[in-house]
Amino acid sequence: MDLIRLRNINKTYKNGVTAIYDLDLTIKKGEFVFIIGETGCGKSTLIKMLYREEKPSSGKIIVGGINVAKLRNGNVYKLRRKIGVVFQNFQLLPKLTAYENVAFALEVFGLPKDEIHKKVVKVLELVGLKNKAKHYPDQLSGGEQQRVAIARAIVNGPKLLICDEPTGNLDPKKSMEIMEVLEAINKLGTTILMVTHDIDIVKQMGKRVILLDSGQIVKDYEEGTYK
């Protein structure tokens, strides 16, 4: 079943820059897909349109059955609840502990406290941070902060996890740890879409790889064919 379907997507920013040009893409449920390409080729723009941080100038976007391009501003939250997003710079709230940062994503829905607790503990365990739950972001390493961000992104049980250079600020060893966490999450059934510049990681993981250039897909490598 298709989780993501893009048809004839064009994106021109207000300043006249065309970031995406007539792009088609289909991603199935449960896939793990890398998006690679040179700086400025439109990778971030592409995924921003998936979680409706940007709107396409034309074309059709379906994510998990939601017609994203036509989604009204007031209904964006319905889409966001199906998607987890992780960035290079972690985006944690500095005044909250690791536990509270993750719980924050559930509190806004008004879940009962004990249910929040159960879910947060479980997901912190999954990312290997159970013993650092009470630490504040500045008491955690970059890799640990990124794992908190991942925990927050998946604590709702989203169908899709989007990562924009999640290992961009990490050394190779820490990067591989993050990849292991993502692999585990993918095994549990979450579709993962990851933008990266780290070719070593891409080669090592052996997943589907989409190569972008000047806002277009120039190559779509099947699983295990990117060398």
Binding site: G74, V76, Y77, R80, V85, Q91, L93, V108, N156
Partner: peptide, 16 residues
Amino acid sequence: KREIEIMRLVGASNTN
């Protein structure tokens, strides 16, 4: 601003 951005990101509705 960041707090609001994160709230939006994790799926809090505008009213929320």
